[in-house]
Design a binder for these strands. Sequence first.
DNA 1: TGTGCGTGCAAGTGCGTACTTGCATTGCAA
DNA 2: TTGCAATGCAAGTACGCACTTGCACGCACA
Lengths: 208, 208
Amino acid sequence: MIEATRRAADSAKSASPEETRERILSAAREIMAKKGKRGATTREIADVAGVNEATIFRHFGTKEALIVAVAQHFCGFLALREVASQLHGEITENLLELGRAMLERMESQMDMIRWSLVEQEYEASIFATTAWRPQLAILEVVGEFMQRRIALSELRGDPKKLAMMFMGFIFMHVLARKKFPDSELHQGGADAALRFYIDVFLNGVRGK
Amino acid sequence: MIEATRRAADSAKSASPEETRERILSAAREIMAKKGKRGATTREIADVAGVNEATIFRHFGTKEALIVAVAQHFCGFLALREVASQLHGEITENLLELGRAMLERMESQMDMIRWSLVEQEYEASIFATTAWRPQLAILEVVGEFMQRRIALSELRGDPKKLAMMFMGFIFMHVLARKKFPDSELHQGGADAALRFYIDVFLNGVRGK
DNA sequence: TGTGCGTGCAAGTGCGTACTTGCATTGCAA
DNA sequence: TTGCAATGCAAGTACGCACTTGCACGCACA
């Protein structure tokens, strides 16, 4: 605890206000991922960020505002559209590439996604909207990809269903790696697992 | 709030201690599903249960003990093995039946599962163990089913991978219904969605 | 050289919450 | 009827947490 505490205390004074704000946001995200919105105390966030507790309130005003800032700061829209729009090759390899991009992004935001699954005190909370919107954006992009491949008769079915299903594979994989870390599914690395999913998926929904 | 409050206050006095305990456990589960472990206060639990706050502590001692009791009480092992062991017919229909049973059970425990996804303050917490164990049991039973069908050359691949994948469909379906309630995936009812998943799954992993 | 902004520090305030306690009440069973 | 076990009720305690405040310090920039 002590070594983690005041991780960057020495650099605190010499840092710019933007860096300070940045460190607070990161620390808040880290602790809230562990202990949830209510379990994260401003004291601990300040300790991990290496700043004084008062500084948090000077920057954000209230803890609630800090939480909103964290959600907005780390839930940026994902630049997946560029990846998807350039995929015109062999469908297996394209899906693999798409899957890799989705996997990477979902893993880096898994803590935020987990929040959004649980924080339902208010249906229209910052989590239900901000934290989940990127996933909706992913779904849309993947749906467009599926749509194009359906038009080419490479796939059959409803593009949105296919997109949801494909995203489900990735989502489950990320979740399962936390919960079943020793599962055979994850041996051989992410690419092997992705290939397995895509194999099943394509056999199931291939057009011709 | 007021009408929800003291929902069963009149019947409280005439109830047996077991019924009182039962009502407290149910109320605790309900509120913790909404607000999480830390967000649920003993006051509100007592109100919803229609008992006095002191009664909670007379029954369970501490809030922590109440939480453990809730996890143990509602995370009983699922009697899925009987269902699975009797499935010797056509594989599509059998998977549908299995899927129905899994869906029903996972939906009824979704709040507990969501807890276990988030409460990771302690890796070996009551949630990581108690709340997740039933899912491991499901996985095992489904794996045995897959194993039998692989032996019959009806399926190909690794039984555990197949089981995990199949459970992933169900899991995602339950999750998605909360988060994408208007999705086309859920139109036509659970059975239609299940048939779609099973269709893809079987095409992907069928043996012959 | 000085002026101001960002921060550390320490003390403090108020509120919500877990938990306790003593006593009155009620229902059931010997 | 009497006694006991379970509960209601009201008041209270202790503590943690969000949030505030006043002051001192130091770095940047004029």
